[in-house]
Design a protein around this nucleic acid. Structure first.
Lengths: 151, 151
DNA sequence: TCGCTCCTGACCAAGGCAGTCGAGAAAGTC
DNA sequence: GACTTTCTCGACTGCCTTGGTCAGGAGCGA
């Protein structure tokens, strides 16, 4: 139930890419802008490339750029690219686990958990993130003061 | 973004306890009912005890029982007892991280993620779970057919 | 062909995860 | 008081993930 450094870095780097439209940005610049260890970031960018989220060119004037418009890439896409499926239970998708006894309805709870995560992550795009114009439902969730409380 | 075996086990054991009201249940019976390795389960039950969710007595006729009524214990309580805070980013609470550059609004997204998890987990009690009468919002989330799709 | 930048695999330390083991301490039961 | 039952709890283990670093290679542009 936590967001790994890798996922966090990946989203931040992608956001940075979403904000520039003129040509490739080199890894070094992304690393500086977001304060991410360069060599680690390069691994992450490679995964994003393999997932078809980012493109890259080598050599002078090389760098990375988004493969699709920022409006069409969601945060969920980025996280899945580096972390695999969201909200697995015991490394298996929730719909495939089978509960017995008094825990039968637990599967519905995990499904609901996943659905509510998706509701946030699949509807927020990189464009939303860079402009700050988050979807209304997300804004509403983040607006409540006790969403900011620690517990 | 995954549910650990420990959290899953903890909730299942707690659900099993919620379903009996007559006296203590021994660890062995819980382990069998939910198919959980006994010795591992005992560690988990101990943590639940330290968190004040469960009580225990040793000796013949000993066992475990819920410290409070099942209607007053939420799944979030149980998960926090064994896993710590829900939805941390990089092992720190989301409201304490500071983003720069184009990722500034990311903090709101993580807050929204946490809030939406809480909306499910803090409103579902052990009583809801054993009776199958989940909160309406949770039912609604789990009812959508594509909540069950893999992706 | 030279310099730049990405690409990739190997490696590493620390810590978490999912348990197992074994000795003890309390609570009955006879 | 002996005995059994059951929780308590620390130690230990093997494996995997996390969060990196390092070194070399491969493609690109000039």
């Amino acid at each position: 139930m936590r967001v790994s450094a890798k996922a966090d870095y990946a989203v931040r780097a992608a956001a940075e890419l979403a904000a520039v439209e003129d040509g490739p940005v080199k890894g070094e610049r992304l690393a500086e802008a977001q304060d991410i260890p360069l060599q680690f970031l390069e691994h992450i960018l490679l995964e994003l490339k393999h997932a078809g989220i980012v493109r890259a060119r080598r050599g002078a004037k090389g760098g990375y750029w988004l493969a699709r418009p920022a409006e069409e890439i969601t945060i969920a896409d980025v996280i899945r690219a580096v972390e695999g499926p969201i909200a697995n239970v015991q490394s298996a998708p929730p719909e495939s686990v089978h509960y017995r006894g008094k825990a039968e309805h637990l599967v519905e709870v995990w499904i609901a958990v996943r659905a509510s995560l998706r509701a946030v992550l699949e509807h927020t795009t990189l464009a939303d993130l860079t402009t700050g114009k988050l979807p209304k439902a997300v804004k509403r969730l983040a607006a409540s003061p006790d969403a900011w409380e620690h517990r």
